[in-house]
Design a protein around this nucleic acid. Structure first.
Lengths: 130, 130
DNA sequence: CAACTGTACTAATAAGACTAATACGGTTAT
DNA sequence: ATAACCGTATTAGTCTTATTAGTACAGTTG
């Protein structure tokens, strides 16, 4: 489990952790029901405070990416993502904003559609369908 | 000039202002060389500190969206956006991340490509090409 | 000169991220 | 059952940063 945290970033550490884990789950590197490192172990590995890990895990759980069981651990929950309508709406809004900005900066529709294909290949495209 | 700022947001006010002005410039509601409200006037309208406006304008200038002239004012700079290679690379990265997440949450390629078309229509599509 | 513009600087306040220490409750294997 | 793990909660202190406040300087315009 390798994490390249940037302690000097404006992005909080817990947010970086959330993003990293999301990527690992989305790209299916962490698989369904696979156990995440424990709060204490990961904190020791990264030499940061356990509370920070806990905050990241709590966030991941509230977003439906993992589930935690007292006494057992935290595990990947890659099911039922489709039900997360609110999150999807938010992401669509962000996507629209970024796409408009990208177009303003010189990209055109075909460039963006290539990005779509690329995103598909790099994530579910090669993994979820096998 | 209407701004619906969320003072309680985790996003800083100056960042919200940057986003708003970007949107207005990208959608061509604010046109080339059009003057932006002065730092002091806008601060008074929004009942926030002039320094916050200044910070937003400085950011917009560093990103190439406006230019400021001492004694005269701040103006829209919608030219030469294509040269901003670094910004474009960053945006592409963010787009990839969001697209992957959107797919994980249930969207497919065609959904995303529809978003691309929609973004085109709502921004440059209907304005830059007339 | 007066009234406007952007810009710069310093200090004070408020909020939030992070650390630290501690404690509680559930699980699992010996 | 008891030790060694797990997640969870709470409180307090530190540090950073956004924001405010006040002041000052420099250029433009009538």
């Amino acid at each position: 489990m390798i994490f390249d945290l940037d302690l000097r970033s404006r992005d909080p550490i817990y947010q970086q952790l959330v993003d990293k884990f999301k990527e690992l789950i989305i790209s299916n590197i962490l698989k369904q029901d696979e156990q995440l490192p424990s709060v204490r172990v990961l904190a020791q590995q990264l030499t940061i405070n356990p509370n920070t890990i806990q905050k990241a895990y709590r966030e991941l759980e509230s977003q439906g990416y993992i589930y935690s069981v007292k006494g057992k651990g935290s595990f990947v929950d890659a099911t039922a993502q489709v039900e997360n309508r609110a999150a999807l709406k938010e992401i669509e809004g962000e996507l629209m904003k970024l796409m408009k900005e990208a177009m303003f900066l010189g990209l055109d529709k075909s460039d963006l559609k290539k990005l779509v294909d690329q995103a598909k290949e790099e994530s579910g495209g090669g993994i979820a369908n096998d």
